[in-house]
Nucleic acid binder design. Structure first.
Lengths: 170, 170
DNA sequence: ACAAACTAGTTTGGTACCAAATAATCTGAC
DNA sequence: GTCAGATTATTTGGTACCAAACTAGTTTGT
């Protein structure tokens, strides 16, 4: 036996399965979660080293610009929530983007605790120009997957996200 | 029209689609990539705040212990490769694990540039005890997905990983 | 034999990221 | 009207992570 198929990733999964045989582990779960993490790290690295590099944008930075572009000016708290980042992280990253002249902070008079963040003209131009190119990168990342497979992938991952949120509620 | 279905994630995707209608973007790709990243971040946060927290282990730290457990003592370079981390990051994290008494470094006499990393007895005990619990967490993360869906998810993500590797080769 | 090229690991300098503590402001109960 | 508790953003202290520069050790070509 010991079939090899020229896919090192799959071979590695098989090696692990053999190594841990008889330990009553859920190998399908292990492989799936592993691949979620590896795929995310790989895609992020490739984006930051490629399409985002000329603009000195991190993945998180792009996400912030994108959310502001789609939904407009909003508070730090909501922005953090939309971008799936902690408030503290967001404060720092908005600072970075502000120093790059891509976003502005605005203090609210009606509630002086609150701060609204919005795109500057430069930020607006950048995201409008960059997002289509970023999207082309995303499409390249999914090269070889049919539309149905892309939709299925997104659906399965939504289930994963929902499960982790459920775990937090307890 | 304007059907809502009690899934905020899906609603958000729909909002974006409406917002960007007519821009000739690949929304299936965008949603899929977005969800890869969000799922990975969510799973990681939940693991580090849950099953890994009592042991002060990061996701990367667990990965290192796991690789050493499965494949045994190995060089820094190979370990970095297996764990999908840069050599520099690995140096730091092996340092952390070493200070926790979970791994040891060993200098090779036959080639004095090389350093092998291996589990200590404590490290070995920890990963043998922890991995089944970590695996239970992984299974919980995939709750509601059939075995076929888990396998499909892993397969689609392997394609994504392979695509990003292809992009690097150019 | 020995300099040039190469290799393995570490260090450096920087951002991103989190949780928890803090500062500033607002609200409601009295 | 005031003050105790809630709420918003920021600061703090720490790890993780990367790319690029660096250090020490090894191989190769002549």
């Amino acid at each position: 036996m010991n079939k090899r198929d020229n896919d090192p990733l799959l071979d590695a999964e098989q090696d692990v399965r053999t190594r841990l045989a008889g330990m009553s582990l859920d190998m399908e779960a292990s492989n799936a979660v592993n691949n979620i993490y590896r795929a995310a790290a790989a895609v992020r690295r490739r984006a930051e080293g490629g399409v985002l590099a000329p603009h000195n944008l991190s993945w998180g930075g792009l996400t912030i610009l994108w959310v502001l572009w789609i939904w407009g000016e909003q508070s730090t708290a909501r922005l953090a929530d939309e971008c799936d980042l902690s408030k503290g992280t967001l404060t720092g990253m908005v600072g970075t983007l502000e120093s790059q002249g891509l976003v502005v902070r605005r203090k609210l008079d009606s509630d002086r605790r609150r701060v609204l963040v919005d795109l500057t003209d430069d930020g607006s131009k950048l995201i409008a120009d960059l997002f289509p190119r970023f999207n082309a990168f995303e499409a390249e990342v999914l090269d070889g997957l049919t539309v149905a497979e892309r939709i299925e992938l997104a659906r399965l991952l939504r289930m994963v996200i929902r499960n982790t949120e459920k775990m937090a509620e307890r």
